[in-house]
């Protein structure tokens, strides 16, 4: 469609495209404007005030919150944790998800049982996951302590959630456990989108399964793969749920993420002004990183 020539016909075509695009986009944009854009603008406004979040009096303090944010060690350490979570989420969830999907795609229907069971973690609510893993990772009677004891032959205690930096990595592991199934399903769908005749043709040409995956499927999955990375990236930068249920940011802030920090300030410490500033800062950081990622890694599609 991008190959239009400079002619009257092309112009009318461009116009009709613009019109069609508007019609298709309007419902989504309207909803987003009301439910997301308005609140985020509101957040930016509040970030200019000193406000406890409930009083009708708020004091305008200009950029003071922002100046504090730039110097705020707690915020930047939370951001650092987010980056660690991001890197490991992408490195764990996506490759494992991809491998599982490849396996299932190769096996077809006879692996349906695998698929169903592999998908279970994604279906569990964070409440249950947090509870079970607190016990599984516990120093006393936890699975890892038991495993260590088994290997070493003497009593070993592994403290995963009570110490820095163990706690952060423990939580990253649990997150990977929870979200990998989604990427698995996502890649299965990606494989499903590849024309089966492509595979048939490749087989006729003498390609093996491995060749097919390496030279045909993976390149074809390109855009899907990059979207998955972007999702994992954004997801881990704004993550809240499981951390809140498992560690609430502890011990001593070692699993504090931007979102948990913001939540505590806004809703527990009566510091909505600064909490909003953290939220706005978080929004800017995530957007910039996500767009940079798009720019660097996502090659423009050809039209």
């Amino acid at each position: 469609m991008g190959r239009s020539k400079k002619s009257g016909l092309a112009k009318t075509r461009a116009k009709s495209i613009a019109l069609a695009a508007t019609v298709f986009l309007i419902p989504a944009l309207l909803l987003i404007a009301v439910y997301i854009i308005y609140p985020i603008i509101d957040t930016f406004l509040i970030s200019g005030y000193k406000w406890n979040g409930i009083s009708s009096n708020r004091t305008f303090i200009g950029l003071e919150n922002w100046m504090n944010l730039i110097k705020d060690k707690l915020f930047w350490s939370a951001f650092g944790h987010n980056l660690v979570v991001m890197v490991f989420s992408i490195l764990l969830q996506i490759p494992i998800g991809m491998m599982l999907a490849t396996f299932l795609d190769a096996g077809g229907k006879k692996f349906n049982l695998f698929k169903t069971i592999w998908f279970l973690p994604y279906l569990m609510s964070s409440v249950a996951i947090a509870f079970l893993f607190t016990y599984a990772l516990a120093t006393n009677g936890g699975l890892f302590s038991a495993l260590g004891t088994l290997i070493k032959g003497q009593k070993v205690t592994v403290d995963l959630l009570g110490k820095s930096p163990n706690a952060l990595f423990a939580v990253i592991g649990v997150m990977a456990w929870q979200f990998t199934p989604f990427y698995m399903v996502y890649f299965i769908a990606g494989y499903g989108n590849i024309d089966t005749t492509v595979y048939e043709a490749a087989v006729i040409d003498g390609a093996t399964r491995v060749d097919y995956i390496r030279y045909i499927a993976i390149p074809l999955l390109g855009p899907i793969f990059k979207t998955a990375c972007t999702m994992s990236l954004i997801g881990s930068l704004r993550y809240f749920d499981l951390i809140w249920n498992m560690t609430q940011g502890g011990p001593v802030g070692s699993t504090e993420l931007m979102a948990t920090y913001m939540y505590k300030l806004s809703f527990q410490q009566f510091n909505m002004g600064y909490g909003s500033c953290v939220a706005a800062g978080m929004f800017i950081l995530i957007t910039v990183i996500a767009l940079l990622f798009q720019k660097v890694f996502v090659v423009k599609e050809d039209y």
Binding site: T134, A138, D159, G162, P251
Partner: peptide
């Protein structure tokens, strides 16, 4: 105190657990 005391939460009953199992 129990090892890994910082890793346990009372909401999940992990302190009562250690009383119940006699440790």
């Amino acid at each position: 105190f129990p090892e890994g005391t910082n890793s346990m939460t009372t909401d999940d009953g992990q302190d009562r657990q250690l009383l119940y199992d006699g440790s």
